[in-house]
Computed example of a mutant assay.
Amino acid sequence: MLEHDKEQAALEKIHADISRIYAEQRKLNAEAHKITRENFWYPLGVVMAMFTIFSSVLALVLKILA
């Protein structure tokens, strides 16, 4: 009986470790997805801001010259 309890405790420990590792994997995958999104949207935002500034300056120059 004692041997069975030790085996059961060992199996429960293994299952707990597996659950912990899966949770860590989900956390890391979420972080990787976040970084991937940031790598796409931040440069796009910078480019959009540059176009906005350029078009505003161009509109101002055209208004002054016209």
Rank of each mutant, 00 (worst) to 15 (best):
residue 21 I to T: 08
residue 24 E to Q: 06
residue 7 E to D: 05
residue 26 R to K: 14
residue 63 K to N: 15
residue 66 A to M: 14
residue 30 A to F: 02
residue 60 L to D: 03
residue 60 L to K: 05
residue 26 R to V: 08
residue 8 Q to L: 15
residue 3 E to A: 11
residue 13 K to P: 02
residue 22 Y to N: 13
residue 55 S to R: 05
residue 36 T to S: 10
residue 59 A to W: 07
residue 41 W to C: 12
residue 45 G to L: 10
residue 14 I to K: 10
residue 47 V to R: 11
residue 64 I to K: 12
residue 20 R to A: 07
residue 62 L to P: 00
residue 58 L to S: 06
residue 59 A to G: 06
residue 30 A to H: 08
residue 24 E to W: 02
residue 8 Q to M: 14
residue 6 K to N: 09
residue 37 R to N: 03
residue 59 A to Q: 01
residue 54 F to C: 04
residue 23 A to F: 06
residue 29 N to P: 06
residue 16 A to N: 04
residue 45 G to E: 08
residue 52 T to G: 14
residue 12 E to Y: 00
residue 19 S to K: 04
residue 10 A to C: 11
residue 62 L to N: 08
residue 39 N to M: 03
residue 42 Y to R: 05
residue 9 A to P: 02
residue 14 I to N: 04
residue 11 L to N: 02
residue 26 R to T: 05
residue 66 A to E: 07
residue 28 L to S: 00
residue 52 T to H: 10
residue 28 L to I: 08
residue 14 I to W: 09
residue 27 K to E: 07
residue 4 H to P: 14
residue 8 Q to H: 12
residue 45 G to W: 13
residue 58 L to D: 12
residue 22 Y to W: 11
residue 35 I to M: 02
residue 35 I to P: 01
residue 60 L to C: 11
residue 63 K to D: 13
residue 20 R to I: 01
residue 55 S to T: 09
residue 21 I to Y: 06
residue 4 H to Q: 12
residue 50 M to P: 02
residue 63 K to F: 13
residue 39 N to S: 03
residue 37 R to L: 02
residue 21 I to C: 03
residue 23 A to M: 08
residue 17 D to Q: 14
residue 20 R to T: 05
residue 5 D to A: 12
residue 32 A to F: 05
residue 66 A to R: 11
residue 23 A to V: 08
residue 41 W to T: 13
residue 37 R to V: 05
residue 25 Q to P: 02
residue 17 D to V: 10
residue 64 I to L: 14
residue 45 G to K: 07
residue 15 H to P: 02
residue 43 P to F: 03
residue 14 I to R: 10
residue 20 R to Q: 08
residue 24 E to H: 04
residue 53 I to Q: 00
residue 22 Y to I: 14
residue 59 A to M: 10
residue 28 L to V: 06
residue 8 Q to W: 15
residue 52 T to C: 13
residue 31 E to V: 09
residue 66 A to D: 06
residue 50 M to K: 10
residue 2 L to T: 15
residue 25 Q to R: 13
residue 30 A to I: 09
residue 41 W to P: 01
residue 15 H to E: 11
residue 53 I to H: 04
residue 45 G to P: 05
residue 51 F to L: 11
residue 34 K to P: 03
residue 18 I to A: 00
residue 38 E to C: 09
residue 39 N to G: 00
residue 52 T to W: 14
residue 54 F to H: 06
residue 53 I to C: 01
residue 8 Q to T: 13
